[in-house]
């Protein structure tokens, strides 16, 4: 399977990565090289095989549903590019 330029543009949009029109053909070539490499997986008969969900058999650890951490909002926002009163600042999303 190969992807065309429109598909590359759509993938970039879904991935939330701005891609210029000049970059598209090169990216398309690289993505197609990877897709043609993985094509060989179609040779394998996978009928009746369960997809892997956990590489080592283990039961999910559980703990009591109680607060064990927190109470330091200033540390949470410390690395944010823009904050106000311990809130993250983003451009307006609701009119």
């Amino acid at each position: 399977m190969t992807v065309d330029l429109d598909t590359v543009r759509r993938i970039a949009r879904l991935a939330r990565i701005a891609v210029s029109d000049e970059e598209l053909p090169h990216l398309r070539g690289e993505l197609n090289a990877i897709l043609s490499f993985v094509e060989q997986l179609n040779e394998v008969d996978v009928s009746g095989v369960e997809p892997m969900t956990s590489v080592t058999p283990m039961t999910m650890k559980k703990r009591r549903d109680v607060v064990t951490d927190g109470g330091y909002p200033e540390l949470i926002v410390k690395n944010a590019p823009a904050t106000e009163d311990n809130f993250f600042l983003v451009p307006k999303v609701v009119e």
Partner: peptide, 27 residues
């Protein structure tokens, strides 16, 4: 490149053909 490939193989219509098949091969 990898984020875009990952986005593609997880996107609607390709998830079973790529991602689920790869996880079966992993088994």
């Amino acid at each position: 490149r990898r984020v875009m490939i990952g986005t593609y193989v997880l996107s609607a219509g390709y998830y079973d053909a790529y991602y689920v098949r790869a996880q079966k091969i992993r088994t």
